[in-house]
Design a binder for these strands. Structure first.
Lengths: 197, 197
DNA sequence: TAAAACTACAGACTGCAGTCTGAGACTGTA
DNA sequence: TACAGTCTCAGACTGCAGTCTGTAGTTTTA
């Protein structure tokens, strides 16, 4: 079905070259500091090529961000089966924050937030792995009679991920005094408490 | 003490002309659609004048946003004294969201979020009226034995405003299907429940 | 297999926020 | 009252994301 004509193969290679050059520059400097012209130069292509393959500079950036989901997924396997749903959720959010703080950093999140748009919003994508993971825990908690049923698992998930997002926002816009781990604990504990029966 | 020499008076007038022209254009079109050149032209000044009085186009935008706090303040006077702290907080957040939705709209918030930076962040300013209002209610609730005391009033306030912010974020980045009022109710109910003794 | 239609790409160009230079007017000092 | 220093402002300039136009080569059609 993909119909790989020689031309399309070459196009894919071009796309890949651009992507790799961009990611390399993003990590070497930062998103804001690397220009599209540099990406184009390093990849030996052109602006025309760049914009046929990507809608914007930000779109490339998002590409990298998808890697985060891999971590999430892997992490869930390490959680003890016997823990309660709210313990799992608390644990998960803590590990998530530590991971994001140490492996990604504020700068990336600032970029993520300040370049987001309704049509291009990584956070709000309901198909995200994060969303699915949280939803599963919530569902589990409801089945076990731990959480309320007035709200659907989907609604509760929306609430939880939203408050995580708010915390992440405050963190990446704050100075060093903001302790991401402590703050997520406070928020999650209050929230989970309120969601229990 | 202000030492109003003729020169400073004229400078203030220039500043005012720029501000008024900008706000007029922002409401006529939108933030993104109005250019600094237009503002400068309409106000009969120059770029040089613009950037001596304002650090950026966004800074002018924020100027307008401060009006919101006036609404907040006024609203608190309309709340029944006898209501519980959590009722007041719930009520307040609901009215706030209705107000923001109907009088301000998504567009402005999108601008607010996507142009924010650590040094220039309206939301995170702890001196904001919003912060003070919420803190007062929280404090009241703690005094009345309604809320936990494990967290300080300041900490609880941070949590609450953060989750409001997260909800606002989701709203302004979402399509029409997002019901801001319903969503804030869900979030606030869960949160307030979890903060009670 | 010739012509028509399309695709991936090159790079010049546009639009806009923000910077820089310089000048004229004002202010404070002696 | 002269003159050195300092503001306010004008507008030319820079830097960069994204657009537009043209084209060579490829694919499709007849």
């Amino acid at each position: 079905m993909p119909e790989l004509t020689p031309r399309k193969i070459k196009a894919k290679q071009t796309r890949k070259k651009i992507l790799e050059a961009a990611l390399s520059l993003f990590s070497e400097k930062s998103f804001d500091e690397t220009t599209v012209d540099e990406i184009v130069k390093l990849s030996g292509t052109s602006k025309g090529a760049f914009y046929t393959h990507f809608k914007s500079k930000y779109e490339i950036f998002l590409e990298k961000f998808k890697e985060i989901d891999a971590f999430y997924l892997e992490f869930t396997h390490t959680l003890p089966k016997e823990a309660s749903a709210s313990e799992k959720l608390l644990h998960f959010s803590e590990s998530q924050m530590v991971f994001l703080r140490d492996s990604w950093g504020k700068g990336l999140f600032r970029t993520l937030y300040t370049n987001a748009s309704p049509s291009h919003n990584y956070f709000l994508d309901k198909d995200r792995v994060l969303f699915k993971i949280v939803k599963e825990f919530v569902h589990e908690g409801q089945e076990a009679g731990e959480f309320k049923r007035e709200l659907s698992d989907e609604e509760i998930t929306a609430i939880i991920t939203r408050c995580m997002r708010g915390t992440l926002y405050d963190w990446c816009m704050s100075g060093d005094e903001f302790d991401l781990l402590m703050e997520i604990q406070k928020v999650m504990r209050a929230l989970l408490e309120g969601l229990k029966k």
